[in-house]
Design a protein around this nucleic acid. Structure first.
Lengths: 217, 217
DNA sequence: CCCGTTTGTGTACAGTTGTGCACTTTATAC
DNA sequence: GTATAAAGTGCACAACTGTACACAAACGGG
């Protein structure tokens, strides 16, 4: 017998444990509770590792959470940047953006579930971090909209307001979509249609807007 | 000495303990974690009661949660119904509705914090219950909008879509407002202004809408 | 090949959790 | 006033929590 190894110190798996911990956390979030109510021991057990091994990779659970958050948004930011560089916005473009975004959500379901549950239910620092990311999307969208010819006379504040309306709506629909069963194709398609219509409707409103319209504040 | 009471069985306080438990839970939610991550013992301790006393009033924590949820929405539904019975919608009415709604939120901060944190972070049944309530608001708003003269040609599905856009936006802004410090008057006012503008903008879009507009599907 | 560093293990411990049980107190109905 | 039900108490216990510590294994550079 070559190596019927002794009683202690099992598998090598080098740096893979860290990733295993992250995956385990996402798994548990997807099929159980929000991240903020996971226990360190649950995660390590799921990852097939002894509890104390956790500390070799993260000082505590909240550090894991922030890492997960970063992982969740990094690729998304990049994708959005690419989408943004396409042609100028028109009705076809709205549809296209929504499609690519929602398929992205679908392909990264666990990450979005994680974020969705922490947005309002997580720790203070977690919530802040997420809202910072969202505000970033809003600002970038506002900058894009500033280039619309029919929006040149809209002031910066109102541009932010419009962009946040769009983003908030898409976020809400995303969260609703995540509540659907993973393979409810029909339901997911419905959400996509709805998102496209809502954004289109907003753009109708935007086209009508004058920054000095209303009953003077 | 009249009554330097013995060692056991303290204060009477009759049926008030149940309410004390509910208040304790809301308190903890407001200044700590989401309800779903509260422990039974925490709540009873805060309520000034021994842990096992809890079971005299609720079978378990999730029952408390559902009771709290009911309490949160009952008065809100009633208020919305009253608001709804006012005059037909116009721009002044949008402003008025937003004002009464947001002052209501302000006066019931803890309840809304509770709901906000459970919306996506709570248990499955809790989330479902909340979304049911929200869908109810959407449907009622859609019915109201059906009476707008310029919306008679919009089909039912699109009416729902529009109503859900309005409701989702207000919900999102409400949640953002709840993140502000309780006595950040300026910030809260800003949210109100923003909400009014967003809803007004949506109505601009609605006025332009035709249910058969788009690139066929 | 050897030796230091990183990574993973096992044991231990004090704190907290939900809940069962037998008990006392309080409220209420007669 | 006295009996009965409802509400509150105290104790116990097994399960689970985060983390400190000393040790073992694997890795990687020399």
């Amino acid at each position: 017998m070559s190596r019927e190894t002794p009683t202690r110190g099992r598998r090598p798996k080098r740096g893979r444990t860290r990733q295993a911990l992250m995956d385990a956390a996402l798994d548990l979030v997807a099929k159980k509770a929000p991240f903020s109510s996971l226990s360190l021991r649950e995660v390590t057990k799921r990852a097939g590792v002894v509890p104390t091994a956790f500390y070799r990779h993260f000082p505590d659970m909240s550090a894991l959470g922030l890492t997960l958050l970063d992982e969740s948004f990094r690729t998304l930011r990049q994708m959005m940047r690419e989408v943004r560089q396409q042609e100028l916005p028109n009705e076809r473009m709205i549809r296209g953006s929504m499609e690519t975004f929602f398929t992205y959500v679908r392909n990264n379901r666990t990450h979005f579930l994680f974020v969705s549950k922490e947005l309002y239910g997580g720790s203070a620092t977690m919530r802040q971090a997420i809202r910072r990311e969202i505000r970033l999307f809003v600002s970038e969208l506002a900058m894009d909209m500033a280039r619309f010819p029919f929006l040149v006379r809209v002031n910066a504040e109102d541009l932010q307001m419009m962009a946040s309306l769009v983003v908030n709506s898409v976020v809400a629909l995303t969260q609703e979509m995540l509540e659907l069963d993973e393979d409810d194709e029909a339901g997911q398609h419905e959400m996509l249609i709805m998102a496209e219509k809502q954004v289109r409707l907003i753009y109708f409103g935007v086209a009508q807007w004058r920054s000095d319209t209303p009953p003077r504040t």
